[in-house]
């Protein structure tokens, strides 16, 4: 095992452990994470696998193939995050809208209710 392999495996394990602690609740997530880290470590230890796959896909080097796939995954993740952010924004908007409508309608109904109340007191 050479230097870069030790570094990459350590980083993969740290990321894996970190996410494992966070995602403890879901079994599916844990299995997915385990498979991801396991395949990362396998590819780091046996770089020939990526090279073979790269040749088969007519890409020069294994590292290039990994780079291309990572770029695609990166864009996919950005879009996923954007979609989630938009959803969050819509939820926030609904909450604020609901609150503003409630405050205004309550204020409008209040004077009428107060008048009714004082009217009752008079009788």
């Amino acid at each position: 095992m050479n230097g870069i392999q030790i570094l990459l495996i350590t980083l993969s394990l740290v990321i894996g452990i970190y996410f494992f602690i966070r995602l403890r609740s879901s079994i599916a997530d844990t299995i997915f994470l385990f498979l991801l880290i396991a395949s990362a470590i396998t590819l780091i230890l046996f770089p020939n696998i990526t090279t073979k796959a790269a040749r088969w896909l007519h890409v020069g080097r294994g590292a290039d193939l990994v780079f291309y796939i990572s770029t695609m995954l990166f864009w996919f993740l950005i879009l996923k995050l954007y979609a989630r952010q938009r959803k969050l924004e819509q939820t926030l908007t609904q909450i604020i809208r609901h609150q503003s409508l409630q405050v205004t309608t309550e204020q409008k109904n209040k004077p009428a209710a107060d008048e009714q109340q004082s009217g009752k007191n008079h009788t």
Binding site: L92, T93, R97, S100, L101, V103, T104
Partner: peptide, 25 residues
């Protein structure tokens, strides 16, 4: 005259929709 207030800034589109909702009420 009715005043509605968003307690944080959401944007003009959101403000208009709040106005629409109130108009329905």
């Amino acid at each position: 005259t009715h005043i509605l207030r968003h307690f944080i800034n959401l944007g003009q589109g959101a403000a208009l929709q709040t106005g629409f909702e109130f108009s329905k009420i």
